[in-house]
């Protein structure tokens, strides 16, 4: 069977393949051009220090974006991701402040994320509620929780070991990014190589066909929201390592960045179209853009305008190119 596909070997096929890859990942030339442009504007752009700071800062967004990608692939949305990050961070911070144990803190963070994920997944998957409103509701609850527990102030008392981890780098890559990469690998493999992953994509493209083929659609929906919640919990822990404290409002501004990154990468909110690799590129573009614009000294309100245009153009481009592919 394989030989039929392998028959077309040689350089011509390879070129066609790589051009095809470009179509699937239109973001790559965008990133390359951005990097070239920014490095010509600022001598600091292509430095190790700069790269390190980009990686560390975006690990939180990236981890959450993975969860959001999975949710998008089922045609849903998770508006609560941002505040669940905050709530997990706050709970973990409080636990660590009284027990001094990073392990317990991490368990608490994941627990909170899982809890909200279960709630979302149950309401959306089993009760059939609309994702938008449901996660809007849980977003508010998570936010309230974060602020009630912390009384609005940053939770102090983070164990020194965690703070030091925030500085840790291996071959120039921040430790927090290494965790992010590990999660990325697991999720990419999980999505593309497992039955679950394939069922997910099928469910996203057509709910009815998925049901007819006997896939337990309720379980799939429950699972993506659960994963999204757990990832939000992990992201919450990472934010503590990055910032030194658990901030009750840490996630508030992240929602639009997360959605923007996933959308820019070219994952459709209608479901069935997209991938985690695309999200990596999308988040990457936004991160590089913000960093570069900062180095160029562009005032932040103009940055907002540029971001908005880019999100729109990027998504449109990605959608158009991938629909052309079919």
């Amino acid at each position: 069977m394989d030989s039929v596909y392998k028959a077309e070997g040689g350089s011509k096929a390879k070129l066609r393949n790589s051009l095809g890859a470009l179509k699937t990942y239109p973001s790559v030339p965008i990133i390359v051009s951005l990097i070239i442009a920014f490095s010509s504007f600022s001598p600091y752009f292509l430095t190790a220090g700069n790269a390190e700071s980009i990686l560390a800062a975006n690990s939180v967004v990236m981890i959450a974006a993975i969860g959001m990608t999975l949710v998008f692939l089922t045609g849903g949305i998770d508006l609560s991701i941002s505040t669940v990050i905050s709530a997990s961070a706050v709970v973990a911070g409080t636990v660590m402040a009284s027990t001094g144990s990073i392990a317990l803190g991490s368990a608490a963070a994941v627990g909170v994320g899982l809890g909200f994920g279960l709630l979302n997944g149950f309401l959306i998957g089993y009760c059939g509620l609309t994702p938008f409103i449901t996660t809007m509701g849980t977003q508010l609850i998570a936010r309230g929780l974060a602020f009630v527990i912390s009384q609005g102030i940053a939770v102090k008392g983070t164990p020194y070991a965690l703070l030091d981890f925030g500085f840790y780098t291996l071959w120039g890559i921040p430790g927090v990014m290494l965790i992010c990469i590990a999660i990325l690998i697991v999720s990419i493999v999980g999505l593309s190589q497992t039955t679950w992953g394939r069922e997910l994509m099928l469910f996203g493209s057509s709910r009815d066909s998925a049901r007819y083929t006997g896939i337990n659609t309720k379980k799939i929906e429950l699972s993506v929201y659960m994963i999204s919640g757990v990832l939000a919990g992990i992201a919450g822990m990472i934010s503590i390592a990055n910032l030194g404290n658990a901030i009750p409002g840490v996630g508030d501004t992240l929602l639009l960045i997360i959605i923007g990154g996933v959308v820019l990468g070219g994952t459709s909110m209608n479901g069935g179209e997209g991938s985690i690799t695309r999200t990596i590129l999308g988040v990457g573009i936004l991160a590089i853009l913000t960093n570069g614009l900062n180095l160029m000294g562009i005032p932040f309100y103009d940055q907002l305008i540029i971001q908005g245009i880019l999100i729109f153009v990027g998504n449109g481009l990605a959608m158009k190119l991938s629909s052309n592919k079919r």
Binding site: T47, A57, N245, T290
Partner: peptide, 29 residues
């Protein structure tokens, strides 16, 4: 955004500024 301020300050460090004046988003972040 606390995270943004963090990376912005790191960016200032990368640019080798001579001093940093900062008003923190949240004094602990």
């Amino acid at each position: 955004d606390a995270q943004t301020q963090n990376s912005q300050i790191q960016s200032l460090v990368t640019q080798e500024v001579d001093a940093i004046l900062v008003c923190a988003v949240d004094q602990n972040t």
